[in-house]
Write a protein that binds this DNA or RNA. Sequence first.
DNA 1: TATTGTTATACTCTATAACTATA
DNA 2: TATAGTTATAGAGTATAACAATA
Lengths: 147, 147
Amino acid sequence: MGATSETVEQQLAREAWKLMFEFIRANSHRVMEVASEMSLTPGDMKSLMSLGEGHPLPMGGLAEIWNCDASNVTWLVDRLEERGYVERQVGTKDRRVKIVALTPAGIAARAAIHDRLFEPPEQFSELDHTMLTELVAILHRMVPPAA
Amino acid sequence: MGATSETVEQQLAREAWKLMFEFIRANSHRVMEVASEMSLTPGDMKSLMSLGEGHPLPMGGLAEIWNCDASNVTWLVDRLEERGYVERQVGTKDRRVKIVALTPAGIAARAAIHDRLFEPPEQFSELDHTMLTELVAILHRMVPPAA
DNA sequence: TATTGTTATACTCTATAACTATA
DNA sequence: TATAGTTATAGAGTATAACAATA
């Protein structure tokens, strides 16, 4: 049953992933909506989202996370800094590096985005208690605990 | 148990949605990878993905689906047409409208994208047969059958 | 000399406005 | 006159290259 069984599971995984993909695509407009509500561009919002509270990051690290050029990080951080959401701190060890940290206003903005973005789409109301419990357990297994 | 029970379910839905969101974000690089493999920009790929085989659409309809300006649709369709993936057909009833249809090459490219994009991420290997079956059933309930 | 981040500049993507052709 | 799509043009976002400060 080895090879056959494995194939069945791969097919199930593929089916599940495909459905998840479609579900996300059907709800992708929400990101734009929330950004628009908060007068942020999608780029600003994405940047803000990936700056953890207790985890300030150097410009270079952001370029890696955001998968863009360093010069673009300068531009993005300038935008957030103008709005008072982040600040640049000079590195203590190496004075060349600039650490980007959320300000209290940035932390608040990030929390507001999360609140709105994590409102579950209407399709979740199709699920009963058992299914919801199962789904949470399954996703907990797939998503590593700490980010 | 009415109000209380509902709140618990809303919390579960929120938790599930948040986890799904994180899971997708952790795998968002795949889209870029596949686009790059096929020498397509993410925009080209997104456009190609939303053109169904038996469902050619007018330029105006695409502007609505892609949520962008009509002039941008012209540009996007030009790109796909240059690569031989779509063709403009003049409307039979109203000669002003242009119907955009996938060519055989476009259908093949779309299938290739799907094949790669729907390869389930490694995290699915954490799930046993029961969980996979549950997940597929749950997602089928949330995603409307026809696209 | 090598590296971090910025500035100057060019290229890509998207939108607004004016236009062409049908209706 | 109104509508579907295109063309001309301007604006946002991103990258490449040259630069300044620090290592």
